[in-house]
Simulated assay, not measured.
Amino acid sequence: MKVFVYLAVLVGLVYGQCDPAANCSPPDCRCFNDNTTPGGLKPDEIPQMVVMTMDYSLNSEFAELYDQLFTVTNPNDCPTLGTFYLQDMNTDYDVVKAYYDRGFEIGVSSVDGTIPKDETGWVDMIRSVKTKITGAGINGDDVRGYRPPQLNFGGTEEFIGIGDNGLVYDAGCVTSEYDTANTFKWPYTYDFPDGAKCNGQSAPVDKEFKGKWELIIPDFRFSNDTKCEVPQGCTNVETKTDAFNILYDNFIAHYEGSRTPYVVIIDAAWMKTDFKREGTVEFMDYVRAGFPDTWVITAWQSLQWVQNPTPTANISSFAPWSC
Rank of each mutant, 00 (worst) to 15 (best):
G12Y: 12
P20Q: 06
P26Y: 02
P27T: 05
P38K: 12
K42I: 11
E45P: 13
A63S: 08
L65E: 12
L65N: 11
Y66E: 08
T71K: 11
P75I: 13
F84V: 02
D88E: 15
D88G: 04
D94N: 08
S109N: 10
G113A: 00
G113C: 10
I115E: 10
P116K: 04
G121Y: 01
M125I: 06
L151W: 01
N152C: 08
G154P: 02
D164V: 10
G166W: 06
D170G: 03
A171D: 13
G172Y: 00
S176C: 14
T183W: 07
G195W: 03
G195N: 02
C198T: 00
S202C: 11
P204E: 01
W213F: 01
I217H: 15
D219L: 14
F222G: 07
D225T: 08
P231F: 10
N236M: 10
F244M: 04
F244D: 00
F244Y: 06
N245P: 04
N245H: 12
I246G: 05
Y248P: 02
D249E: 09
Y255P: 02
G257M: 04
R259I: 04
Y262C: 01
V264A: 11
I265T: 15
I265A: 13
D267T: 07
A269W: 10
A269L: 14
K276Q: 13
V281Y: 08
D285W: 04
T294Y: 04
T294S: 15
I297R: 03
A299I: 00
W300S: 15
Q304N: 14
W305P: 06
Q307R: 11
P309R: 06
A313I: 11
I315T: 11
I315S: 13
S316R: 14
A319N: 14
